Each structure stands twice: as C-alpha cells, then as structure tokens.
Amino acid sequence: MSEPVNWARRVLNEAPADLLLDRISSILTTSYRAERVELLQVDYRLSVLLPLGEGDPVSGPGHPAWRCFDHQTPIVADADVYLPVSVRGERRGVLRVGPVPDDEAVIGELAEIATALAHEIEAATAGTDVYRAARRTRRLTLAAEMQWEMLPGRSRVRPSFSLAGQLEPAYAVRGDSFDWSDDGDRVWLATINGMGEGVAASMLTALATHALRNARRAGLSLADQAALADQAVYDLHRGGQHISALLLELDLRSGMMTAVDAGSPRLMMLRDGDVRELPLEAQFPLGMFEATDYREQQFALHRNDRLFVVSDGVIDATGQDVRYGETALERFLRRTGPMEPLEAVRSLLGDLRAFVAGDLVDDAVVVCLDWTGPQP
C-alpha cells in the first residue's frame, strides 16, 4: 500500500466526524496536486447525486458520476476521475478528483482512498447529521425518517449473493420496509408491507422489525421468529392492527430457501430469462390473532437465480386510471437480467414513477436478491 493511501487512512481515522472531506481534500491536494475534490452522495430516492457543500446536483443518467455509481468502477472524464464511495456493496456516492494523470497506479490509489472515505463516513454517520442532511432534496416526513433509520442499508454484496432494496415514496414512506442480515453461511431477509398512515404505520413496522431482529439474534427458527413478532404485535394491539411480512432464510452453501409467508408481499423469480411468481402458503399476518402457529416451506434455488420481493404498492400503482399490474411487472423484471440488483430495483421504481407520472401515492417496497452459488 502506498504512503499517500496509508496517510489518508490515518488522517481519516483521526479526523472529526464532520471534517472527513476537508481532511481528505488536503491530502489529495498535497499528494496528487488535486485542484477539485467533491463528494457526491446519492439521495434517498436514488435519482440524484448531491454535493456535500457547494456544487451542482447531478441527475443526468449519462453523466460520468452516474456511470461510476452504476458500474462501481473509476471513470475518467475531462481530466477528472470519478471514484465509487461504497462499503461492502452499500453505495453511498461518488468522489470526484481532478485533475489527475492518466495513470492506472494513481487511479488505483485514489480508488483505495475513496473506499477508506466510505468506511469512515459509515462509522461517523451515527454521531453526526452532516452526511444524512446532505443526502436529501427535500425534508423527509417524520414517518419516513423513522423508516430510513431502521434500514440495514440499501445494497449488500458478498461472494455468494448480492442484495438491494428501496422504499417509495422515498421522502414520505409510511409502513413498508425491509431488513436483512448475513453471517457468511446464511442470509435472512424480511420484507414488510405495513398498514396504516403516517407515524402510526411506521411505529407498527418498527415494532415488528425489532421483534424479528430480537428473535433472529436469539437463534430462533424462521417460524419462531414470525411467532414472536406476531405475539409482540398482538399483545400491544389485540388484533386491532396487524402487519404483513415475508420472511426468507437462504442457505448460501446449498441454495435452499426457507420461507414464511405471513400475508406477504409477492415473491417473484427470474430464472434463465423466465419470470414466475413462487407459490407460497398464505398464513395470517403478524398480530391478527393470538398465538398463531407459523409453518415453514422450502424450495431450492439454482445458481444465478434472482428473486424479487414486491409489495402491493407496486402492482396496484395506478396511472391514468390504469393499473400497473402483474403483466407489466413481469415484462419489466425480465429486462433486469443484465443489471446489478440495485440498478434493477432503481430501474423498476423509475419505471413505476413514469407510469404514474409522479411520486407514488401508496407505499411500495422492492427487494432484489441474487444467489451466485456456493463459494469456497
């Protein structure tokens, strides 16, 4: 590792949380004679790259910054280099540095520094609002603020799987959400189709999410995770409120998927260019009745299978009195084969917004999971 990269890591590790970009700019100016250093963060809607501090937002899909974000590779344009700012597949944005020489070794060092910056932003975000506040084009509703704070991230990449999810309307989402976790051998995914309006909906989703996490971290089976969350919601609301959820657990070595369908969003599979909805045993939503007994079912994935989980807000979206529907959904999912999961999710929701000619009225959640096969 080169001395400038080591220096950058040390400085970032010691920098105040709100001054990470200032400190890294000084290093890039000294070590690489950079005249321009700009951090562009992707907004909550995944539709614009917003500068931290002064600068112009980047919304055009053909812009080098977006090409860098989409393909996760350095892009050189007009003497500037655009570098991915990502942590374990979680795409935070792009670092623009210029001018830079056309030298692969230099660009490689700058890419390492951009990754180090991403890790420090990830660590610092818990203690400062600087980076969160700069990622929004407008104010989030209170319910949306609560939902985004609960998410584990928007994308995740490991040798055996890739995962991405998104909520809409991003700045006003209420009850829809998702959660995931992995331990190297398995990945767990919960997708929630919340009921209700405003903060009440987000509070119900928060209760179910934390109950599921509590059960998962205690090592309980998927069916028992559902039962614990079901009881938590029922104990508080006595059946007056309930929540639909789909719980999945994927064995990363065998490709065996375990599922519990608690009044769930829909589960679609893209295999060899063909899209089909996977038949799941419909069971009661969480909290509808006391002490519901949930049952697991299993099915095997093939290498390079892609799963989509979509809530009713996607299929039932209406534009000019026409429903988006299953046919349009299947047609679009078929086109996502060459895309990375985050790009597939973003493209689907972009198509949905174009269909309704604006922001979605009802909540929608889309999650995409690729299983690339067992890895050594």
Rank of each mutant, 00 (worst) to 15 (best):
S264R: 01
R334W: 04
Q225C: 14
G358Q: 10
C68N: 07
A218T: 02
V361P: 05
I315H: 07
H237F: 15
N304T: 08
P376G: 11
R217H: 12
T115K: 12
G287H: 04
R10G: 04
Y44D: 08
L39V: 09
T318I: 13
Q41E: 08
P265H: 11
L142R: 11
D351E: 15
R156L: 15
A114I: 01
Y171H: 07
L352V: 08
A105G: 12
M195V: 04
V85A: 04
D22K: 12
A134S: 15
G273Q: 06
G194Q: 01
D224R: 14
G62N: 10
A17R: 09
T30I: 12
G198W: 02
Y82K: 05
S181D: 12
L207A: 06
C368R: 08
I24L: 15
D129R: 11
H242P: 00
L252C: 10
E149D: 13
R303E: 15
R132T: 15
A364H: 09
Q72G: 05
Y44T: 11
G350V: 02
A133F: 07
A282G: 12
A262Y: 00
N6E: 12
H302N: 12
G93M: 03
L163D: 01
G240R: 15
V356S: 09
G175T: 03
A79D: 12
H63D: 15
A317F: 11
R136D: 02
R213Y: 00
F161K: 07
M195I: 05
L142E: 13
W7V: 08
W7G: 02
C368G: 05
L163W: 01
G98P: 04
F284V: 13
L117R: 00
L228Q: 14
T115E: 10
E35T: 02
A344C: 09
E168Q: 13
H71V: 01
A232P: 01
G127R: 10
G240W: 07
R216A: 00
A164N: 06
V11P: 13
R45T: 11
S155K: 04
D78T: 03
L207D: 01
L20C: 03
V361G: 11
M195F: 06
D183V: 07
A172C: 03
A232W: 04
A77N: 08
V37T: 14
P374H: 12
E145P: 02
S202A: 15
R276W: 06
L270I: 09
Y44E: 11
G89T: 06
D293K: 10
Q166A: 14
V81P: 01
H302Q: 12
M203A: 13
D370A: 14
S47L: 09
A8K: 02
M268K: 07
L286M: 08
R138M: 13
L286F: 10
W148Q: 00
A114N: 02
D351M: 09
R186G: 00
Y171D: 02
R186V: 06
A328H: 09
L348G: 10
A259T: 09
A364E: 14
Y32D: 00
M146G: 06
V81Q: 02
G153F: 05
Q320C: 05
D312Q: 11
R266T: 06
F284L: 12
